[in-house]
Design a binder for these strands. Sequence first.
DNA 1: TGTACATCAGTGAACGCGCGTTCACTGATGTAC
DNA 2: TGTACATCAGTGAACGCGCGTTCACTGATGTAC
Lengths: 194, 194
Amino acid sequence: MKKTPYHHGDLEQALLEVGLSEARASGARNLGVTYLAKQVNVTPMAVYRHFPNGESLKVSISQLAREELAKRMQVAVAREADVKRRFQATGRAYIEFGLDEPGLFAVAFLDCDATPRRYDDPSAWDIFQGAILDLAEAGYIELVDVQAVTSMAWAVVHGFVVLAGSNTTYLSDTTSAQIDDLIERTWRGITAPL
Amino acid sequence: MKKTPYHHGDLEQALLEVGLSEARASGARNLGVTYLAKQVNVTPMAVYRHFPNGESLKVSISQLAREELAKRMQVAVAREADVKRRFQATGRAYIEFGLDEPGLFAVAFLDCDATPRRYDDPSAWDIFQGAILDLAEAGYIELVDVQAVTSMAWAVVHGFVVLAGSNTTYLSDTTSAQIDDLIERTWRGITAPL
DNA sequence: TGTACATCAGTGAACGCGCGTTCACTGATGTAC
DNA sequence: TGTACATCAGTGAACGCGCGTTCACTGATGTAC
């Protein structure tokens, strides 16, 4: 704990880690410079050695949350060989991430206006799109429909997380069967003939 | 302007109005007690004559935004006689509201945790559900599926607004045809045979 | 190998800000007799 | 109809808070000669 009284080993890394765990615990509430600095036992000013301002720190944490989501989707997708099941797995992973980690989910899609797109790793969107391109390749859908299908699939899962996450009276408790049902209907929506 | 130097005619109403227009203009950014009081040329303290605290004022404004959405959907639904077209109209109205009024949309679905459900008028959800109940009555879907279909439909339109609203690189500009496409796919998803 | 010095990474105190909220008050309103 | 008084709806100054950010600084680190 008191290993580095003056020079912190890697303050940037430490800030991001504590920020991510704070996001996991309580969303975007406590991602301020002052608060996070206190968590790492460091003066607020020290943060500015590594980030130009508080906003950029928040953006970085948001980016980490998105990478976490993408990682989960990629794991899920890697487990399936069939293209259809791979598509379903991406959607399911997305929803489960949103329900398991509401804090990270909120932070991941927080103020997207300031969020630049400089991913090296594939984003959640890329993974969706990849799975859907595979569907097109396998002949389930038309190639021209890939973009429309991707945005629909994303809209479904994202919207569902918002719905299930808010404790509305509409959806009491989300069951695994409900998720299956949702994904199945989405599947029909994108593959059903006119 | 200087009509009522001391006793404001109806401060509560005035606060809600300015709050709603502020929400329309810039989302949830400026819905604080101090700021809104200033807009109505009133001391912050005066607000507490009408609302127990700042949060409850915000909740009331959020409620107004939701009513605005419901109103739009109801207008749209009233224009259509056919049950299928009515279903489509609700979805379209929802999406168009989200795109036309991003500020109101954000405020409407802001911190749903604190939002009690005490609607007199039907909510957006109720209108969705109503349209879908009509579908069931007309035989398009099974009655047992009403809840699942409603949550799917809501998820689609809500998620789509979020997607189109964030200026991602994925969706450049939303066209009317894109919305039609989305709704048509949703329709297929909920009515297609297994 | 040892010292001199630039550079790096932190300290600690302070700022201005706007927030929500509390206090004691006072001007306007409306009702009872 | 007029007056007395309770009540209502606002004022205005002040509070404590945490925020992001700036300042001048200093202790630690590493490199050049």
